[in-house]
Amino acid sequence: MKLILKTLKFIGKLIVGILILVLFSGICYKLFSPKPVPPGKLVNVNGTNIHVRAEGEKKALPTIIMEAGAHSNTDMLHWVAEGLKHNTRVIRYDRDGKWFSESSNNDNISPEFYAQQLHALLEKMGEKPPYILVGHSMGGPYSRIFRDLYPNEVEGIVFIDSSHPEQWKRLAQKELVPNEQAKLFKIGSILSDLGIWGVYNKIISKPTYQGDGLPQEVYRRSQSLTFNSGDVFRMFLRENKLTNDVLARAGKSKDLDALPLLVFTATEQYKESQKNRYRKEGIDPEKEVKLWFDMQKELKELSSNGKQIVMNASHSSIITNKANADAVNKEILLFAENIGKKN
C-alpha cells in the first residue's frame, strides 16, 4: 500500500512539474519570440485601429475594394492584390477584430457595422469612389451589404466563390463553425494566449509549409500571429455568431438591377476526406456540389448584367494559387475596363 501511495505521489509531482515547465516555456515564448509585424498600416476609425493595405495609384479604372472571407485575411488575397495594383488602386483590409485589426469590443454588432466601418475607413484615408467590390467567400455578402448602404459609390461587384444567403438552409453544413470545432477554437485561444501553442509548433511539431501557393513569408506571418495570440481563434468564434445575421441581411439587400457583376465559381468544393465523411453520414457530396453551383448561378442572376466563370480550383486555391489568381485578375481587369469605358 505504501508503495502505491509513493508511486501516486511521484506521478502527481511529475505531472505538476511538467505543467510548470510547459507554462514557463509558454511564458518565455510570449516574452522573447518576435511579434508579428503588420505588413500594412493601422488607421484609427472611431477609436479602433483597423489594418489596411492600400497599393497602386488611382488611374482611369475604379478603385478596387477587397473583402476577405470569414476565416481569411489580407494575406490570403496576396496574389489577387499583386496582380491588380499595377493597373489601379487596390484596398484590402482586415475587418474589426480580425488579424492585425483591433476589436472595437462592441457586443451589439449589426450586419451593417462592418460596411459602415469600411466606409469610414475609406473616408479617413481620403479614398474616393467609384469602387469595384471584390469579395471572396463570406466577403461576398459583406460586399452586398456595403453596396446596399452606399449604392452610388459602387459601380461593379466581383464574387469569388462567394457565400450565398441560403447556403446553411440548403447545404448539409449548417453553420460556419460546427460545435466540436468551436470547442477546439476555445482551447486554442487559451493555449495561444499562454504561449503553449507557439512552443509546441516551434519546438515539437515544426509544421511544414502549407500555404496553398502563397509565398512562404505570408504563410509564416499567418502562423506567427495565430500562435502569438488567442484573438485569432476568438474572432473565428465571433464571426460564427454573426454569420447567419450577415447572410440574412445580404439576402434582403436591394436588387442589383443592371449593375456589372462578375461571379467566379470553383469546381472543387470538398476534399476527399470530407466526401468520405459525407457518404458515411448518408449525404451525397455530388448533390452538395450541384446545390452550390445552383446558388452560384443565382448570384449571377442578381443582375441583368451578370457573368459567371467556372474555374478548376478549390474554394481557397482559387485565390491562393498564383496561376488561378492570374486568371481571376485578367477577368477583373477586363471587367473594370468595360466599366471605365461606360463612364
Rank of each mutant, 00 (worst) to 15 (best):
W197H: 15
T88I: 04
Y278E: 07
V37H: 06
L5T: 08
N46M: 09
S162I: 02
F227L: 14
G282W: 03
N228E: 10
Y93G: 09
Q216N: 09
N106I: 09
A248I: 12
P260Y: 05
S162E: 12
L302A: 09
A120V: 08
N87M: 05
S110V: 06
F264D: 04
P130N: 01
S224L: 07
G40I: 05
P285N: 13
K35M: 13
T208V: 07
T7Q: 04
A248W: 06
D148S: 10
D96F: 09
E112I: 08
D75P: 09
K41S: 11
P129M: 03
D326A: 08
E286M: 15
N87S: 12
E268S: 09
K13Q: 15
V154A: 00
D245S: 08
S253V: 00
G12D: 12
R53C: 07
D193A: 13
P62F: 06
G230Q: 01
Q116F: 06
L149V: 10
F335L: 00
L23A: 04
A336I: 03
K128R: 04
A258V: 14
Y200Q: 15
L5V: 03
N338D: 03
S304W: 11
E180H: 10
E268I: 13
F159S: 12
A325N: 01
T320W: 10
K297L: 13
V177T: 06
S189A: 07
K202E: 10
S224A: 12
F227S: 07
G47E: 03
Q117L: 02
N44C: 07
I91W: 00
K254T: 06
L302C: 09
L121A: 02
L133N: 03
